[in-house]
């Protein structure tokens, strides 16, 4: 076929090139989608039960949930009092911009005052902060907390980030509950809760 008119040729050029571009985009989509987390990745996220009978103050239990390191620690009376003072003022003292379950939205970011459960992944770039409960163990004003050695972010014993460090928000608190005094279930708010699975 011979296309005579110039505008007609231009129109055909436009149609062919724009439709090919759209087609190429669609062809790309399955490849892009294929890189998303699959079923197997999602199934590791079911809740886990941890025995905390032997946990003493200033101790830590580290477990894995959804492939993430979770710390379970026990705070002392002094440390609890320190947290109530909210001093020196952290960046997000009321955890408005941070992630925690509804029932942990309090000054201690936990269900109980003493037991604290936290996702040990720095909100800066994902290193695991170390648990440093002793006073002055990071610098001379250190009141106990979590210290991320990668780029020096500091968090208090409720996982709240201090100012002047690179991490923007508080450490994340996972959903959890106590089926009985000595056990903690991480990954659900209450028994049978499957929301996070």
């Amino acid at each position: 076929m011979v296309v005579k008119s110039k505008s007609r040729r231009q129109f055909l050029k436009f149609i062919v090139s724009s439709l090919s571009a759209v087609g190429a985009l669609f062809a790309f989509w399955p490849f892009v989608k294929s890189m998303q987390p699959g079923k197997k990745a999602q199934s590791t996220s079911s809740p886990i039960a941890v025995d905390i009978k032997g946990l003493l103050p200033n101790q830590k239990i580290a477990v894995t949930w959804q492939g993430m390191p979770i710390y379970i620690i026990k705070r002392t009376e002094n440390q609890i009092a320190e947290l109530e003072k909210k001093e020196p003022y952290p960046r997000d003292p009321d955890s408005l911009y941070s992630k925690q379950p509804q029932n942990s939205s309090n000054d201690f970011r936990s269900l109980n005052k003493d037991i604290f459960v936290v996702v040990a992944i720095c909100t800066h770039l994902g290193c695991s902060p170390t648990y440093k409960p002793e006073q002055a163990s990071v610098d001379k004003d250190w009141a106990g907390g979590f210290f991320c050695a990668c780029h020096g972010s500091k968090f208090d014993l409720a996982g709240r980030v201090y100012k002047q460090v690179p991490a923007p928000t508080n450490l994340m608190v996972p959903p959890y509950y106590f089926p009985n005094k000595d056990t903690i279930v991480i990954g659900a708010d209450k028994a049978g809760d499957e929301r996070y699975v």
Binding site: V32, P37, A41, S45, Q66, G126, C127
Partner: peptide, 29 residues
């Protein structure tokens, strides 16, 4: 740990950052 840190660069992007990081690593971690 270098992988963790570098993939986390994506999380600075507002709104879509977290999803993008999961897409790139193909898992939650």
């Amino acid at each position: 740990w270098a992988t963790r840190v570098i993939i986390s660069f994506l999380t600075v992007i507002p709104y879509v950052g977290d999803g993008l990081a999961q897409w790139l690593q193909g898992d939650f971690v």
